[in-house]
Design a protein around this nucleic acid. Structure first.
Lengths: 346, 346
DNA sequence: TTGAAAGCGTTACCAG
DNA sequence: CTGGTAACGCTTTCAA
């Protein structure tokens, strides 16, 4: 059972392959009419034959000939990560509405893996790339730029990269919001735990924290504890007992995994929030509402992150020359969800 | 800046395109030697030139010519779903180790969307498909079978489909385990909430529940409350108040979303588990350990589900004729994690 | 409105 | 070991 080609359809419908190609690529306009220079009757005949024969376009051939693939690549650090899984879906849906397919591949937070992924991606004639860069990922991304493939940086900025679109959370503002919520509720000795990942989102959230402390004359209390993803489980418990013993009143956790870990440690040590330690967590999760005391947290507009990154990428694809650093950097506002973990200090 | 082709490399290295093709496709054996009928010195020269020129294979051309794409498609109902996000990553990693790229696309739990996705997938010369079918998805999957593209059903079975690989959780056994845990701890009036999705995983978990009740002479207490994903939030609260008033002692929740919902309702109604209602939840989540009382739950071997589905699919791709219904249906065992929500009934 | 023919960059086949 | 050449199925001029 040979696969049906455009030629089979052409023969059966007694027209040329050109015509079939025209018809198969025609988009329907608002009236549902085929928008192409073909006699509607002929077009309909072609369509009927194609359907009857079970014709399916060969994407590889089309892509080879046209140099396009109608596919965009999305490279998160880890597709299974809560945060990206949510965004992925939005990207998928929006890309589809623009007529693009989406190709996902995780970079695993490793620059070398990112380069491999980028190589395969570029080998696929991908029309554009949305990437959450990991530290050291500049080279890989530069490859895409060199190949004239539009790039949108999602969630994490790399300032040294130019000529790429950027869709980011206003992370600094998130840090400020979290810290000020605590300050407004009467907490002064506010500290933070962060990751040593060398990623803009963390450094910006830290900057926001420091800025808010400074503006409220609390700079003397500023302290950021650093840990790594792998060591966090071990480190956090020590950090917390130590903090409690030093009379720290509140903690800002700039990411979900740290927030969950801190809640686990509090539970284990039979500490209560906010009486023993006030908390502001990050990202959305069921645990924030199900924890014994509900948890104040910062949420990112996942839907809009996905939507805007696709919209921007498509714009860059359609109009490669129109790049404009200012216009093509989109900062989205975080939102604060207030829970019991930052109740007013007595 | 024209893209470098195999021909450019051939010219520059003073060899034929054939040779370049050989070299570029050769796999390295264990000694790191190129495994192909080419003079090692020539091969090295080709490799050097390719690197110097920045050659990148054109995937579309290779795929067009060979009819293969070295890509498998994965079609979950929703990539952002906790359960699938985890599996996706394992699939990605394993597929990579077999030399395959992965193409994800959500079916959105709609048969029509699944058909669209399948059409694009087949247009891409995909070598194989891993799919978590939704109700009514038979037709879409049959398309793949007709196109001689190997299929593996993941997580959900469709019994009417033959000639496809299957990698499933032993859902019936999961239902039995959950129910017997409750029975062993002294609970008798055990009920269940389930979804009306028409999916094998749910019906099997229900079967396990009934079976365990029957075997323990508790069949008179069997009661399954049905709700839909959209109505669950509304329904669960009513179901629980009603259950409490009828003296129901325990509830088995066959999926994560229902488990989370029930915990939320318990919290809202100031009910305690297990004293007011014992609980067995499903799938893994931070909330099970962070909830005031830790929650007993059934976990699925996500890593193995991903691993086995890839392994099976690759086997079917390599050896299309060797299909064997028995051998190619893999049932994985669930695991019970005991928490406080099923503490012994006083 | 329609058709003929020229590739796109590979891989597969056959010959040396 | 190496090289020539014909496809693969489609899009894209160009011409009618």
């Amino acid at each position: 059972m040979k696969r049906i080609t455009i030629r089979d359809v052409a023969n059966e419908a007694h027209v040329s392959v050109t015509l079939v190609s025209f018809v198969m690529n025609a988009k329907r306009d608002s009236q549902g009419n085929l928008d192409c220079p073909v006699n509607p009757k002929t077009a309909q005949r072609v369509l009927d034959v194609a359907k009857r024969l079970g014709y399916r376009r060969n994407f590889a051939a089309a892509s080879l000939r046209s140099g396009k693939s109608n596919t965009i690549a999305v490279i998160p650090n880890d597709i299974s990560n809560k945060f990206f899984a949510g965004i992925s879906r939005c990207i998928e849906d929006h890309a589809q509405s623009y007529g693009y397919n989406v190709f996902f591949s995780s970079s695993d937070e490793k620059a070398s893996k990112l380069e491999n992924v980028m190589d395969t991606v570029l080998a696929h004639n991908i029309d554009g790339v949305i990437v959450a860069p990991c530290t050291g990922g500049e080279a890989a991304i530069q490859k895409a730029i060199d190949a004239k493939v539009p790039v949108v940086l999602l969630d994490r900025d790399i300032e040294s990269l130019h000529g790429v679109g950027k869709v980011l959370l206003n992370d600094c503002s998130a840090g400020v919001m979290a810290t000020e919520e605590l300050i407004n509720k009467g907490y002064k000795k506010i500290e933070m735990i962060s990751y040593t990942l060398g990623i803009s989102s963390f450094s910006e959230r830290e900057r926001g924290y420091k800025e808010a402390m400074q503006n409220n004359n609390l700079y003397e209390y500023v302290k950021i504890h650093y840990t790594s993803y792998d060591d966090a489980r071990m480190d956090v418990e020590k950090i917390i007992s130590d903090a409690i013993s030093r009379g720290v009143e509140a903690l800002f956790l700039p990411t979900y995994s740290l927030s969950a870990l801190v809640l686990a440690v509090l539970k284990k040590l039979h500490l209560k929030t906010p009486s023993d330690l006030a908390i502001v967590g990050f990202d959305d999760s069921d645990i924030y509402s199900l924890y014994e005391t509900t948890v104040t947290h910062i949420v990112q507009p996942l839907t809009r992150l996905g939507e805007e990154s696709v919209k921007l990428l498509v714009k860059l694809i359609k109009n490669k020359s129109s790049y404009n650093e200012e216009e093509d950097t989109i900062l989205l506002a975080p939102q604060l969800i207030v829970g019991g973990s930052t109740a007013k200090k007595e």
